[in-house]
Simulated assay, not measured.
Amino acid sequence: MPRLIAAPFLNDRLVLRPGSSSGLKIPPLKYAELQHLSEHGGNVPEWLSVAVQKQWALALAGPLRDVVLVRDPSPYGYVRASYEINKGCDYDCPHCFLGQKKFEGITAQQKLRLLEIMRDAGVVWLQITGGEPLIDRHFPLVYQSAQDLGMMVAISSNGSQLHKPAILDLLTRHRPYRLTLSVYGATAETYDGFTRNRGAFERFSRGLAAAQNNGLPVRLNVIVGEHNAHELEEMKALAQRHGFPHQVYTNMSPTIDGGAEPLPTQAEDYLRKRSPFAGCNAGHTFFHADPFAKVSICKVGRDPQIDLLTEGVEGLRRLGGIADSLQLRTGGCSGCQLSSTCWTCRPLAKLYQEAKAPRRTYCQHPDGR
């Protein structure tokens, strides 16, 4: 894993440190200098050494290529991606938007090829998710390989595996950019009941303590449904005791296949009014890859997909057009005169409609006018 990464990010040029949430922005000419020094075996320039010492108290000297991975600019413009390494999970939460959670995917070598394509696409920030990513047998290989390719890696997990020495050692030696953990209860009875997994709260608690003791960059997602809403304040207090920032999520979505199963799990009294949808970069500077390396604009708008292992990085040139077509107001939303105030993107609204959800769950104009 490189000590530092120099990479283009949209119109900026950044110097990043794996495992750190801070970075340096440098002028394009300085970035070009780093490219030249890296290609020709030059030493760390003094200006970079001074800046790195000030930013991270890190001494940097010697051949630049030995301590800084200088990423090549990409013509594709994709700087972020998420990778659903496996849909399999050790929990059976009723609110899960994945629906059927099967343990299946591609080979280790194909996963490494996928990462290389992401690198060629320009991806700097990569989120590894699932299912539960830490139970995938190839997770350690994928995680470390992504860092070796010059990506800042975030992980979304339920935390059930964090207490295991092999996982803990991996994440402390090669620190993630962020580790986002979901919280489903503040007591064993509620947590185990929500996840439908006996002993889950005990494993989660051990993982949370291990993450805190090792200073891992944890952020907690407090998931609120009808079966654990009574422990909302206790879940927030749990986050505060550990010193971890947290967010509260109350609105459940249909499954990625348009199934309505997660919707009845919502706690009606805790649902939040969403802000108007103001557009997003899905499909233009961001994409999502499923366990079979099929790429879509995001986790919600999954159809149509591009097979990256078959088409290679060139296949991504079609993704922007797919994104624009998916955002068109069609079906039950066609002709709406109030779309500028809508708080649901078109792909998500389509899933609600396929789930035959009440209009009020995805549209703030329930009378249909």
Rank of each mutant, 00 (worst) to 15 (best):
P63L: 14
D66R: 03
V67D: 00
V67S: 05
V67A: 04
D72S: 13
S74N: 07
S74R: 05
Y76G: 12
Y76P: 06
V79I: 11
V79W: 07
R80T: 11
Y83W: 15
E84K: 02
K87Q: 09
G88R: 03
G88T: 02
G88P: 00
C89T: 03
D90I: 11
D90K: 13
Y91N: 14
Y91R: 14
D92N: 13
D92T: 09
P94N: 05
F97N: 06
F97A: 11
F97S: 12
F97T: 13
K101I: 06
K102R: 14
F103K: 11
E104V: 13
G105V: 01
Q109H: 14
Q110T: 10
Q110H: 13
K111S: 13
K111I: 10
L112V: 14
R113Y: 09
L114F: 08
L114A: 12
E116P: 02
I117A: 11
R119P: 00
A121Q: 03
G122C: 10
V123Y: 00
V123M: 01
V124D: 05
V124S: 07
W125D: 13
L126H: 02
T129I: 14
I135G: 03
D136T: 03
R137K: 15
F139I: 04
V142R: 11
V142W: 08
Y143E: 04
Y143D: 01
S145L: 07
D148T: 09
D148L: 11
D148I: 06
L149H: 03
V153W: 00
A154Q: 08
A154G: 12
I155S: 00
I155K: 01
I155N: 00
S157K: 08
N158P: 10
Q161T: 12
L162I: 05
H163P: 01
H163M: 06
P165D: 10
P165H: 03
I167V: 15
I167L: 12
L168M: 09
L168K: 04
D169L: 11
D169K: 15
D169N: 13
T172G: 01
T172Q: 05
H174D: 05
T180G: 10
S182G: 11
V183M: 07
V183G: 02
G185C: 05
A186V: 02
A188Q: 11
E189R: 12
E189N: 06
E189D: 13
Y191P: 02
D192N: 09
G193K: 00
G193I: 04
G193C: 02
R198H: 08
G199N: 05
A200W: 02
A200R: 04
F201H: 13
E202S: 09
